[in-house]
């Protein structure tokens, strides 16, 4: 077994032992969707939304919630703790590299976010008959780009926060605007045009639009995907510049 595989294996076990992360990434998005589904108005067809129900628009937003909690709260918390406790440092004294831990954490959080997303999509389909994404490939591509952008945001938080506590504070500060951009507080469809245009320029706003378009059967507008790609590249560069191993 190679060093990176061994680290991934151990980190997978550890991830399964974090009830907090498991709840926020896997269960919370579905619970949120269940909560929305309990509101009768959200289940009624709204002519103002092109004959859709509000719940139909919420599924792509809730899909992003898994990603938001995984990348902004869970991953920076785990990595800053590893740095704070000298776990990354210890690894530097062995033939393994501490970057193995970083990669393992990113892979695991990305996988968990996708799993949380799939659970939410399945729940929407089974309980309220929300149509599955019509453009599966486009949906997958959008989700992949959103995941990369989310991980990049998490990486920047990890790089800038000196302690796990600071990471938590920064993570929460970014968490609420991200939830808004993803359309959790109000569906972005009902927002004024100018507000929407601004939201579409930030990662989770662009991601929500792209997922909605893919869910409704069209390829996402290129600007949304470009916005996601640009954020990913920019944020990763910042994270790489400022990250400290100890």
């Amino acid at each position: 077994m190679s060093a990176s595989t061994a680290v991934l294996k151990a980190e997978t076990k550890l991830f399964a032992r974090e009830p907090g992360s498991l709840f926020w990434v896997l269960a919370f998005p579905s619970l949120l969707l269940l909560g929305f589904g309990l509101i009768p108005k959200y289940r009624q067809i709204d002519p103002g939304l092109g004959g859709n129900r509000i719940i139909d628009f919420y599924v792509p937003s809730v899909v992003l919630v898994a990603l938001i909690t995984a990348s902004l709260l869970s991953m920076p918390g785990a990595l800053t703790t590893y740095r704070e406790r000298g776990i990354l440092r210890r690894m530097r004294t062995t033939p393994a590299r501490p970057s193995h831990l970083l990669v393992a954490q990113m892979v695991l959080h990305a996988a968990a976010a996708v799993l949380g997303a799939v659970l939410a999509i399945a729940l929407g389909r089974l309980v309220w008959g929300v149509a599955l994404p019509e453009q599966m490939l486009a949906y997958g591509v959008s989700l992949l780009l959103a995941t990369l952008a989310g991980l990049a945001m998490g990486a920047v938080i990890t790089a800038l926060a000196r302690t796990a506590k600071a990471a938590q504070a920064i993570g929460l500060a970014v968490f609420f605007p991200s939830m808004f951009a993803a359309g959790i507080y109000v569906p972005t469809q009902v927002l004024p045009d100018t507000v929407r245009q601004v939201i579409e320029l930030i990662p989770f706003g662009a991601a929500a639009q792209a997922l909605n378009q893919a869910a409704n059967g069209s390829w996402p507008t290129w600007t949304h995907l470009t916005v996601l790609a640009l954020w990913t590249v920019g944020l990763m560069a910042i994270a790489a510049r400022w990250f400290r191993w100890e």
């Binding site: 151990a10 550890l14 406790r85 440092r89 210890r90 004294t93």
Partner: peptide, 13 residues
């Protein structure tokens, strides 16, 4: 082989 002064392992490992 190194034992560091202030360094831990993952708490749940």
């Amino acid at each position: 082989g190194v034992q560091l002064q202030a360094s831990e392992l993952q708490a749940k490992l």
